[in-house]
């Protein structure tokens, strides 16, 4: 059997690859959410407050 399309995966292999890709995607999405939540937790409630520093006056 000759073929110039390179490596040909079987249907079962394609299915496994799809499931692996989906799992990697879910893990990455979970990590994005986790890092976001941890960042908010680490910064504390102060992150929601507007800056209390006086505004810089621009002299014309």
């Amino acid at each position: 059997m000759t073929n110039d399309k390179g490596v040909i995966l079987t249907e079962a292999q394609k299915k496994s690859r799809r499931r692996r890709s989906l799992a990697i995607g879910l893990v990455l999405a979970f990590l994005v959410i986790l890092f976001y939540v941890v960042t908010i937790v680490k910064l504390g409630p102060g992150v929601m407050k507007k800056s209390e520093l006086p505004a810089i006056t621009v002299l014309a």
């Binding site: 110039d4 390179g6 040909i8 079987t10 496994s16 499931r19 692996r20």
Partner: peptide, 24 residues
Amino acid sequence: MSLISEERTVRADNLSGFAGVEDY
């Protein structure tokens, strides 16, 4: 070209591409 492709096609059956999420 055809020889190389044939070899690669044959090898595809032996790849560990069947590993599922449950194996990891």
